[in-house]
Design a protein around this nucleic acid. Structure first.
Length: 761
DNA sequence: GTAGGGTTAG
């Protein structure tokens, strides 16, 4: 498409209309391009209203016999007078008659074309308002009429036609209108219309060619704000972001606009920044924001906020701070949302005290010259932050404070935060009290309230209470959602009641509640733990059928369960399945497989997998080496196990942790090398690796074999010093041994102060 | 800008 062969003639380019937006069609007839006055006003010997009245009251066949009208024809009227007159004739038909009358009888030749095009413009305007249906069709008829008679189109007529055709997606027609306009009269606004028509008509490639011309450094039609609007509108509505255009391409394009001094308004800019951040391109959003500032654009608080919240989601606290400092430098005042993001972020990092300081500062005195009064959202954020660090009592106090000092009535979110706080602290009764208080406050509980309470009950093992509560709430009209079912299913699985879990799973689908990856995970894990690996795989395939993609965690759990069940072929199939679903193995997957093969004594296979792991960018970690050490110990190759262990701290710089020491200490004790085991315990102390109950249990067993009482006492004292709880295994070893040798007193004082865990963990 | 579920490997 040839855009502009025209010389750039500023004089002939009309000024940009103030309402350059495409959506302004209805207001169009009021718009007159004032620069459309190529001629000085002629001496008027007639008045527009008079002529209009004459034309309206006289039949058009009699116009030529009216002396006043004939005189009017001989005193060339200005094009704008003609425009005014034609507009007032009341119908397209009359306007067309007038057009013919003027064209046929007017004596003026110099102004003829210009006058005709103004008259014609008024006809178009009339037609647009008069026509009830098929405006584009009628306008196209008129356009063809003008074209046939070689009447040049005024810039306003072109605008009107192109807008109309563009909206009607009449791309061909729009382009021919554009081509009718003589190149000297083309301007950015007309090119904008062309661009809009091309995008609406889905001729994207030509659209981009036009845009590219506009964006060139010495462009004849430099872009304006409408150009940006047209491009963004097309991009947004037709979902180009991330599909047709990458974030990078969009940024590149926008920077070209910036270089022309054309910037985005804060609504668009905020929308884009948000979109970029949500698609994981915070860095690009960051660059774009800075490019716009660098090139002179004004960035408002809302756009900063969008980026801040994106950075917050990525936990990039450093950049959040940087950005907030830049806001200060650029004198962009933070608003309530800025504070909201900041305080929420501090809370999510468990830095509640700092959050509270900011909160109090902003409410009380001025913070850096900015005074923003905290609102309910901010209170809720802080209350939640307090609850999340176990300060639910303080949260409760804050709720009362906000009520008394600010008159804010707590809402469902306020209550949900507090109820969750007390639930997580195991104080379900307090949560239920708050639930009752909601009624008094006329705050309506929602599904989140219910789920929070259900989970609180389940965590305490009160699955039946939970089921009763769920039934009550359902009677009151509250429906469970996928989270409700996940909580209940997880809970039934944890008490090994797979049947109830399964029936809830089925009930969920009946209640038109779609299972998601998490609920599948819960059920699959439950089945794996119940050793029903086949059922677990079956549910996995059901998930696939339902179009629910299992995530990496779920696949890893399944692969692990299959390995534990010695079903390596099925595990392999699952792995293939996972890779086909586009999920790459991660270090958990690799470690699971390495652990399986090394425990089977297939060290060659294990090391082949380890190589692939490294090729995939996952460095073997402490778990990988743990698996190998464990396997060599099982295979009776303690030397190889020790070699790996020594390499860990020296060569590969993966310091051994408690689990590694435990494996070795246990094996050493079982191989009658208690001295070496004790020396490893000493090494743990030196290296700051904390022994746990398992460490001590392994040692006690070894010492018992040797009947090495003194050493056992020493280690019992150490255990007490380290505040490490004995468990039932500790007691199983120590009780008979020490009783037999009459050291019950020592045993009593050792156990004192401990509530011996009965867990089999 | 605020609230609820599952977190797999030695």
């Amino acid at each position: 498409m040839k855009l502009a062969a025209a010389r750039k003639s500023i004089l002939h380019l009309p000024a940009l209309p103030k309402t350059g937006r495409i959506s302004g069609l209805r207001h169009f007839s009021g718009e007159i391009d004032d620069t459309q006055k190529p001629l000085p006003p002629p001496p008027t010997s007639f008045a527009v209203p008079e002529i209009v009245s004459l034309l309206k009251t006289t039949d058009h066949n009699d116009w030529i016999s009216n002396s006043q009208l004939v005189e009017f024809l001989h005193t060339p009227p200005s094009p704008t007078s003609l425009l005014k007159i034609t507009r007032q004739l009341g119908s397209t038909e009359k306007a067309l008659h007038f057009f013919e009358f003027f064209k046929t009888h007017s004596s003026s030749s110099s102004s003829n074309l210009s006058s005709l095009s103004f008259t014609f413009q008024a006809i178009l305007e009339q037609a647009m308002h008069e026509e009830k249906s098929d405006v584009p069709g009628k306008l196209f008829q008129l356009f063809s009429f003008a074209k046939d008679r070689k009447i040049p189109l005024s810039i306003n007529a072109v605008t009107l036609l192109m807008r109309c055709f563009g909206r009607a997606k009449m791309l061909e027609e729009s382009i021919s209108v554009y081509n009718e306009l003589d190149s000297d009269s083309r301007n950015t606004n007309v090119v904008n219309l062309l661009l809009d028509c091309l995008f609406r008509g889905r001729n994207i490639d030509d659209g981009f060619k036009v845009l590219d011309e506009m964006l060139k450094r010495d462009s004849d039609f430099p872009p304006n704000n409408s150009t940006v609007d047209i491009v963004l509108d097309a991009m947004w509505k037709r979902n180009w972001v991330g599909r047709r255009m990458s974030v990078e391409e969009i940024c590149g394009l926008l920077v070209r606009f910036f270089e022309h001094g054309v910037f985005l308004d804060d609504v668009w800019f905020t929308k884009l920044i948000t979109k970029f951040c949500r698609s994981g391109k915070c860095d690009k959003a960051w660059d774009l924001l800075h490019d716009m500032m660098k090139l002179g654009g004004q960035v408002k608080a809302s756009s900063f906020n969008a980026l801040l919240s994106g950075l917050g989601r990525e936990h990039d606290f450093q950049k959040m701070n940087l950005l907030m400092n830049e806001m200060k430098e650029k004198e962009v005042n933070p608003d309530i949302v800025t504070f909201g993001i900041f305080i929420n972020h501090l809370c999510k990092c468990y830095r509640v005290d700092e959050a509270r300081q900011v909160f109090e500062k902003m409410g009380g005195s001025e913070t850096d010259g900015v005074l923003v009064k905290p609102d309910l959202v901010l209170y809720n954020t802080l209350i939640d932050g307090l609850c999340k660090v176990g300060k639910q009592e303080e949260g409760l106090k804050l709720m009362e404070k906000m009520r008394l000092e600010n008159g804010y009535v707590p809402n469902t979110i306020t209550y949900n935060c507090l109820i969750d706080g007390f639930c997580k602290a195991g104080e379900i009764e307090r949560s239920l009290e708050l639930f009752d208080q909601m009624k008094k406050d006329r705050v309506v509980p929602n599904v989140i309230t219910m789920n929070t309470l259900l989970r609180g009950m389940c965590k305490l093992g009160r699955v039946n209470s939970a089921m009763r509560f769920f039934a009550e709430m359902q009677e009151k009209g509250l429906k469970g959602d996928v989270i409700t079912y996940t909580v209940l299913i997880t809970s039934f699985c944890s008490v090994n009641n797979i049947d109830r879990a399964m029936s809830l799973f089925n009930e969920m689908s009946e209640n038109r509640c779609l299972p998601d990856a998490k609920v599948y995970y819960s059920l699959i894990m439950g089945l794996c733990q119940a050793r029903r690996t086949d059922d677990a795989s079956y549910i996995g395939s059901k998930a696939k059928e339902a179009g629910v993609g299992l995530d990496i965690i779920c696949y890893n759990a399944l692969i692990g369960a299959l390995c534990r069940k010695n079903k390596i072929d099925e595990a392999h199939k699952m792995l293939k399945d996972m890779e086909e679903a586009g999920i790459k193995p991660d270090c958990y997957t690799y470690n699971t497989l390495i652990s399986y093969f090394s425990e089977k004594g297939q060290f060659t296979t294990a090391s082949r997998i380890m190589k692939r792991m490294i090729d995939d960018g996952f460095l073997p970690n402490v778990v990988t080496y743990g698996a190998l050490i464990h396997a060599y110990c099982l295979a009776g190759n303690l030397d190889e196990a020790m070699k790996i262990f020594q390499n860990m701290s020296s060569a590969i710089n993966v310091p051994p942790n408690t689990v590694i020491y435990n494996i070795l200490i246990d094996t050493l004790c079982k191989s009658d090398k208690v001295e070496a085991a004790i020396s490893l315990l000493g090494e743990m102390k030196d290296k700051g690796v904390r022994p746990n109950t398992k460490t001590y249990n392994a040692l006690f067993k070894g010492l018992h074999e040797r009947n090495w009482v003194e050493k056992a006492f020493e280690i019992m004292d150490q255990m007490t010093e380290n505040a490490c709880n004995p468990d039932y295994i500790t007691m199983e070893v120590l009780t008979p041994w020490l009783s037999d040798i009459g050291e019950t007193e020592k045993l009593r004082s050792f156990v004192e102060g401990y509530e011996v865990s009965t867990s089999t963990a």
